[in-house]
Each structure stands twice: as C-alpha cells, then as structure tokens.
C-alpha cells in the first residue's frame, strides 16, 4: 500500500468515497467540487480506461497543485477523443504538439514557467506530460529519456493500454506477449505477440534514478491519487505508468474496465509499486491471488489461447511472467501469508 488504508469502515479505502471518512481523508474523485479536468462530451469509447485514468490523474494533480497545472499531451486516443475541433474536453491549460515529443514540450513549458517565476510570477505552476504507451515507450522514448536525464521538473504520465489503439490496435513495445493486435495476428505457429520482446518503461525510468517512479491502475483510485499527489511533492522528473484497459483493443466488455485492471494486479500481470531515486520503496500487495487465466479469459485479444484445445504452454509462460513480477516487485504480503 502506498498510503495508509482505512482498515475498516465498511469499504475501507477500496471505494471511491466513503461517507464515514473525514472530508480531508476522502479521495479527490469523491469530491463534489472535483475539477473534472477532462470533462463530459469527449469521444472516448464506452468504458475507456484511458479517459478514466486521465481524469483520475489530472484531477489529483490539480488538487495537489491548487489548480496550477499545465499539461502537454502526445498524439493518441486521449488527444484525439478530447480535442477534436471545435470542442475540447479539457478544462486546464493543455497543449498537444506531436506524437513523440510530449516530454520535450513539457520541458519547454516547465522552463518557461521557471523563467516567469524568476520574473515575478507568484503561482507555483507545475507541468504534466501525458501520452499512450506508444507515445511513451516507443516514439517518445528518446524525448522521455532526455527529460528524465535532465531531471526536468515534469511529471510524465503514461496511459498504458498495451498498443497503438488510436490507429486501430497495433502492437507497441508495451503489448503483452501472446496478445492479438492488428500487427500480431493470432495466426501461424506463434499466434499473437511474441514472447521475449517488449519493454517495461517503469523499470527504465527507475534506471534513470529520477526522484519518483510509480505504477498504478484505474482499479485502485486511492493508490493512484496518492501517487500523483506524492509525485507532486518532488521537484524534477517523475514518471507514473497507469494501466488503462481499452475495451476496443482488448476486446473486453465496456463494463469490465475496472475489473480487468484489478485482475491485472491480482494475478501479478501488472505490478503496482513505487520507487524513489531508482530504488523500489513500496509495492501494493495482492489481496486475493488469482491465476492469470482469470485476467486473460475476459479479453478477446487472448481468445486464441482458450479455443477448443487451450494453449496450455502459452498460458503457463504468461503465468511465469506473472510469477516473476510477483517475486521481483514483492507483490505478496509476506506477513499475511
């Protein structure tokens, strides 16, 4: 747990709100006056995890900065569904430049703010950059690494839906093995995305030894908000990687977005943790450990694993990846077990 959970108030801190908590202990999203930084009317698919994650994260950042926030956005679903002329869903100063340059644009914004403050600006304006996994781990990788390395005062948020969704679900370096995408079709001897490729950006971010790195999912709002707020207590480069299910790309039911996020963590497929200056400082523990099948089955992108003769070996390889995550990121609570 990244924050002190309320042990027992009916739902503890699992739900978005909890009327039994003191107001200051409630989540940003529970607030009637939350900013809705990403407002209604956007064109994201039904049940889009990215739309949800973005509002969660940016509202939390707005809260943490007293609404002194500017965002740079990479090209991708989030940008396309939020700002088609003539309407924008953003309620904060927001800028989209290109697919691969959001971190650099944010560096520029932060630098400009620094100078403005030297020249007398009173507001402590902070900067976030955000993009999809493609915009982050692939095309924006260079700019991101540069921003990290210079330790620019930017919080970068990656919304990982495991593929290039906006262009019609192609493979990215964050697509999980075995997953079907338009460029890793479930055909041939090794259907779906191959094993042994891909990269896990949070670990690479840690290697830059930046002040703060965290992962989160849209299933654990408290944790996510806590991490965004915590990130805002640091100066310098920070990175938060949020798993955001994509009903379209994953072939999942629109109402299952949160459930799948939850299962991603509970099966060990997606580790949820925090790191400071390159060292793991905390990992969210699995509450009810489940086999990876539970996570894979509801997603059509893995449907080829569960045909007439289930791909037992492939599922076992995915389980092995999950087991490795569990070990590596200390996802099991040793005391509780």
């Amino acid at each position: 747990m990244s924050f002190q959970p309320v042990k027992f108030y009916q739902t503890g801190t699992f739900t978005v709100g909890n009327r039994l908590l003191a107001p200051q202990e409630r989540s940003v999203q529970a607030n009637m006056e939350r900013t809705n930084s990403l407002n209604s009317g956007h064109r994201a698919c039904q049940g889009c995890g990215e739309a949800l994650g973005a509002r969660y994260a940016i509202d939390a950042a707005m809260h943490a900065t007293d609404n002194q926030l500017i965002a740079a956005n990479a090209t991708g679903c989030l940008e396309v569904f939020s700002t088609p002329y003539p309407e924008t869903s953003w309620q904060i100063p927001w800028m989209h430049s290109l697919f691969g340059n959001a971190p650099a644009v944010a560096t520029g914004i932060a630098a400009a703010i620094k100078i403005k403050r030297q020249k007398g600006l009173k507001d402590d304006v902070r900067v976030v950059a955000q993009g999809g996994d493609g915009g982050t781990t692939d095309i924006g990788f260079g700019c991101l690494s540069g921003m990290f390395e210079r330790n620019d005062d930017v919080l970068y948020i990656c919304y990982d839906n495991g593929g290039y969704m906006n262009t019609g679900v192609q493979r990215s370096s964050a697509t999980p093995p075995a997953a079907r995408t338009a460029t890793t079709m479930p055909v041939g001897p090794q259907p779906g995305n191959v094993f042994g490729q891909g990269k896990f950006m949070p670990a690479i971010a840690m290697a830059h030894e930046i002040p703060y790195v965290a992962t989160a999912t849209v299933a654990d709002l408290r944790d996510l908000e806590h991490k965004v707020k915590k990130a805002m207590t640091f100066r310098g480069a920070r990175y938060i990687h949020i798993l955001v299910p994509c009903p379209l790309g994953w072939g999942s039911a629109s109402q299952d977005t949160i459930k799948l996020s939850r299962l991603a963590k509970e099966t060990g497929m997606f580790p949820v943790f925090e790191a400071e200056y390159g060292e793991l400082t905390n990992s969210s523990k699995i509450r009810r450990l489940l086999p990876v099948e539970e996570y894979l089955r509801p997603q059509k992108r893995f449907a080829h694993l569960f045909g007439k003769s289930p791909a037992v070996a492939t599922i076992a390889r995915l389980q092995a990846l999950a087991d490795k995550n569990i070990r590596k990121y200390e996802m099991l609570d040793k005391e509780a077990n």
Binding site: I70, A72, M95, S97, L98, G100, N101, A104, V105, A106, T107, G108, I109, A110, A111, A112, I113, K114, I115, K116, Q118, K119, G142, C143, S145, G146, E149, R150
Partner: peptide, 28 residues
Amino acid sequence: VNCEFINVESEFAAMSVAIGSSATGART
C-alpha cells in the same frame, strides 16, 4: 539573465522544447 539554456537530446527535442516554452509565453 532570466534565460534557461537547455541541452537537449536531439533537434527534434530542441524544437519540441521550443514549442512548449513559446506556447507558455517565453521568447524562445
């Protein structure tokens, strides 16, 4: 004075940083 000199990692980044700073009202 009141100037930030940024060593970027590529020309693509140089122009991108410039885009960000210019949009934030800084002479770039």
